[in-house]
């Protein structure tokens, strides 16, 4: 009895102090595992992609071992709240609303977003955001549940019907099947999509949508998410991240996976 009480108390104390860092040198990373080029889990459970590169680079800098936890994107933030992993690295956008639930490192990258529609859609040649948003009225738009761009469409085009998916691959499958009139996602996702034969009848609307279009929903770029109030871990991750941005590690990985450099300058 005394023993269990003891372990109980210690467990409590350690988790308060941020156990992952001090405890066993393992950094548990929550990631989607189902987003092409960002986070791809293979049959053996290994994760590759930009998110995995960022995670592995961080772990190397901090001299820790990365352990990936793969689960659907919309469950990542709620699970963080409940200690399934220590950090989220999953192309997670920094938003004011999420900041109430979790803390972030400095932003390290930002990918522009694009709408994709059928080539014969009247929106295909749209040139500005207002035209697109007006044209979406009464149309069906596919987005991934819980993402910043899902919120963006919900706010900016309230008269469009939102189809939300658990995974990017499901969203793309439905776009290719013609079940949605338009889909919004980031440029790396589209780069990947347009390599497939299914994309033949589709086109990207030529308008870069950046977080500046609406900070409230699109946020401030991607950061590493971590549990609230863990200042020690946050400080270590921040300085490691800044070093990785400055020495070009992040940029190299971005070029490798996306063919473009999405790095944000270290704003520390």
């Amino acid at each position: 009895m005394k023993h269990t009480l003891c372990t109980f108390l210690t467990a409590g104390l350690i988790s308060v102090a941020g156990m992952a860092l001090a405890d066993n040198g393992i950094l548990r990373i929550g990631t989607e595992g189902d987003a092409p080029n960002f986070s791809m889990a293979d049959a053996a459970g290994n994760v590759t992609g930009f998110d995995a590169d960022v995670a592995n680079a961080l772990c190397a800098k901090l001299e820790m071992t990365c352990q990936f936890v793969v689960q659907s994107f919309s469950t990542l933030v709620p699970s963080m709240d409940t200690d399934r992993f220590d950090v989220i690295i999953s192309g997670l956008g920094i938003t004011d609303e999420r900041r109430e639930k979790i803390d972030y490192t400095i932003p390290y990258a930002s990918t522009p977003q694009y709408f994709v529609v059928a080539k014969d859609s009247p929106l295909a040649s749209a040139k500005d955001l207002d035209t697109i948003l007006a044209g979406l009225k009464g149309k069906t738009v596919g987005v991934v549940n819980g993402t910043t761009y899902a919120r963006f469409v919900a706010k900016m085009a309230p008269e469009a019907t939102l189809n939300t998916y658990e995974a990017t691959t499901q969203q793309l499958a439905d776009l290719a099947a013609g079940r949605v009139d338009a889909a919004l996602s980031d440029s790396p996702t589209w780069a990947d999509f347009f390599k497939t034969p299914e994309s033949a009848g589709y086109t990207k609307i030529d308008l870069r949508i950046l977080p500046t279009a609406d900070h409230e929903t699109l946020g401030y770029g991607m950061g590493v998410g971590l549990k609230k109030g863990n200042a020690a871990l946050q400080a270590k991750l921040d300085s490691a991240m800044c070093a990785l941005i400055t020495d070009g590690t992040i940029a190299a990985s971005s070029m490798k996976w996306f063919g473009e450099d999405y790095t944000l300058p270290c704003a520390k």
Binding site: T7, F8, A11, G12, M19, A20, D23, N24, I26, R28, Q67, V69, Q71, T75, P78, S79, D81, T82, D83, R84, F85
Partner: peptide, 23 residues
Amino acid sequence: IFFGGVQAVETLLHLGGNSAILG
């Protein structure tokens, strides 16, 4: 259970943060 109960289980069973087992 998955959204709301993880913390409770972690505290009760003290799995040492092994997420594969926790899942």
